[in-house]
């Protein structure tokens, strides 16, 4: 397969050579949506955080938290600004050192240096870092090809269509609006396989229609087997996507998505 990624007469071709397939045991991994629809009792935790304390320079930003997320499950972290939701999530995926406690992903200690971690976990934070000279589709091609996706062009075209970026495929990131750049970042998580998806306020800078479309899709993927960890401030997004919720503050409250939506509205974890 060839992916035409150049502009004008200087087309570049990213050739997939016939190599020996995946070196990981068991050969190529099944896509997330094809994960076995096991019963709840059989499902293993994808994420397990035990007495996790997140913070900076020895200073905790919120209470100690323990939770688990398995496939077919979506955990939403909610709470007021500055409560420590993003810090907890960054700690869970190994971008910050925990002050105490442990996190296991697929039974192994979190280490984003391992191939398994990067193969399984898709993370989208609000990083506004792009290659200024590369187009939208070229950014996505890096992710897609780097994960060994077959039919890179088709996958990227489908995601560009879903995120409403087809017309911007050949635009460079700094010619896009901030909302379009956000869509591009989100698309990067969908052009690759994943068994755990971690999103930090995905609804930010998206219009209402796109929020709804994204929420519906995420829920469908969770139902198909994806494990999702999401930070959100949007009650509608929360109730559509989440199967359970944590209200993050000085103390941590586990609650249903519906109650969490009420808690968001009132910034009070005890609100009904």
């Amino acid at each position: 397969m060839k992916l035409n990624v150049g502009g004008g007469g200087a087309s570049l071709y990213f050739e997939v050579m016939s190599k020996v397939s995946d070196s990981s045991p068991g050969g190529p991994r099944l896509p997330s949506s094809a994960a076995s629809p096991s019963t709840p009792a059989q499902r293993k935790d994808v994420v397990r955080a035990e007495k996790l304390q997140a913070g900076y320079s020895g200073n905790p930003v919120c209470g100690v938290v323990s939770f688990s997320v398995h496939s077919h499950q979506s955990l939403a972290l909610v709470g007021p600004n500055g409560a420590g939701k993003s810090t907890v999530v960054k700690t869970v995926v190994g971008q910050l050192e925990p002050l105490s406690g442990t996190t296991l992903i697929n039974g192994a200690e979190v280490d984003d240096r391992t191939l398994d971690f990067r193969r399984e976990v898709a993370v989208v934070f609000d990083d506004d870092a792009f290659f200024p000279a590369l187009t939208v589709e070229e950014h996505l091609a890096i992710v897609s090809a780097g994960h060994g996706v077959e039919d890179v062009e088709d996958v990227i075209a489908a995601e560009l269509e879903f995120f409403g970026l087809s017309e911007q495929a050949k635009s460079r990131p700094y010619n896009l609006s901030s909302g379009q750049r956000r869509r591009m970042l989100l698309a990067s998580a969908f052009v690759r396989p994943r068994s755990l998806l971690v999103l930090d306020e995905p609804e930010q800078r998206l219009d209402t229609a796109m929020r709804h479309k994204l929420a519906t899709r995420l829920r469908a993927e969770v139902d198909a087997g994806l494990a999702l960890l999401v930070v959100t401030h949007d009650p509608d997004f929360l109730t559509t996507v989440a199967t359970k919720a944590l209200f993050v503050a000085d103390t941590i409250h586990v609650m249903t998505p519906q109650r969490a939506a009420a808690a968001i509205a009132s910034e009070n974890p005890y609100a009904e």
């Binding site: 060994g148 996706v149 039919d151």
Partner: peptide, 14 residues
């Protein structure tokens, strides 16, 4: 959407 994987590019190719 189902995503099938085959082989990956090397870091050098990327």
């Amino acid at each position: 959407m189902s995503i099938q994987t085959r082989e990956r590019f090397s870091a050098r190719e990327i």
